[in-house]
Amino acid sequence: MASETTGEVVHHVASYEGMPQLEFSAFPNQIFWMVVALLAIYFIIARVALPRIASVLQERHNVISDYLSQAEDFKSQAQEAEAAYETALAEARAEAQRIAAETKAEIQKDLDKAIAKADAEIAAKSAESEKAIAEISANALENVKEVATSTAGEILTALLPAAADDAAVAAAVAKRMKG
């Protein structure tokens, strides 16, 4: 440390005794420059900064809402497209069903025709067959009658030649066959 006298001097030069805040003689100076600075800041803020920032924020708001409405538009367009797709799909499905039904009906018609034809053929065939069967059975009956009559005549001639009468035998055979 320095000697006492220089310490004294250093102290007086370097350190402020008391509070600078309470030195009233400096007040006008501080207040004057502060008012100048406040006016400058006020003009910067009120004339330049606030309108500019407000317009920027407004513009950003507009841009964002524009984009949002665009997105809304795109969304409704997508919805419209989807609806159109759905209707097209439904129409196509209905068309397909109609075609399928038509085809089915045509096929059914053909089928019906073919079945009817087949039925008719079958009926004709069976009628023919029945007729043939009836003929065959009639022939068979006739043959049986003949055989029976001749057999009965033979037997009668062999047993009772006196009573042999062809007409009577035939009548008896016919009578028995009916019974």
Binding site: H12, Y16, E17, G18, E23, S25, A26, N29, I31, W33
Partner: peptide, 14 residues
């Protein structure tokens, strides 16, 4: 330093 603030004029740049 104690005299510095005593005689400031209101317009002195400080």
């Amino acid at each position: 330093i104690n005299d510095v603030m005593k005689d400031l004029a209101w317009y002195t740049p400080t």
